[in-house]
Amino acid sequence: MEILVFLVPLALALGFVGLLGFLWSLKSGQYDDLDGAAWRAIADDEPANGQGRSK
C-alpha cells in the first residue's frame, strides 16, 4: 500500500494540470465560437488550392 504515497499525489497533480489546462483554454477564448471550431478542425490547410475556387 506504500504505492499510495506516489499514486495519490500523482493523481491529484494530474487532475490539477487538467483543470489548469481547461482554465487556460477558457481564457484564450477557445469556447467563444464552438460552431466555427468544429469546422476549422476539418478545413483544408492554407493555400492548397489558392485560386481553384469556382464562383
Binding site: 493523481a11 491529484l12 487532475g15 487538467g18 483543470l19 481547461f22 482554465l23 477558457l26 469556447y31
Partner: peptide, 20 residues
Amino acid sequence: AQGLLRRLGVAAFAAMNVMM
C-alpha cells in the same frame, strides 16, 4: 456565461477526481 463555464469546469474536474 464565461463565469458559469469556469465554475462548471472547476466543479466537473473536482467531481471526476473525487469519483476516483
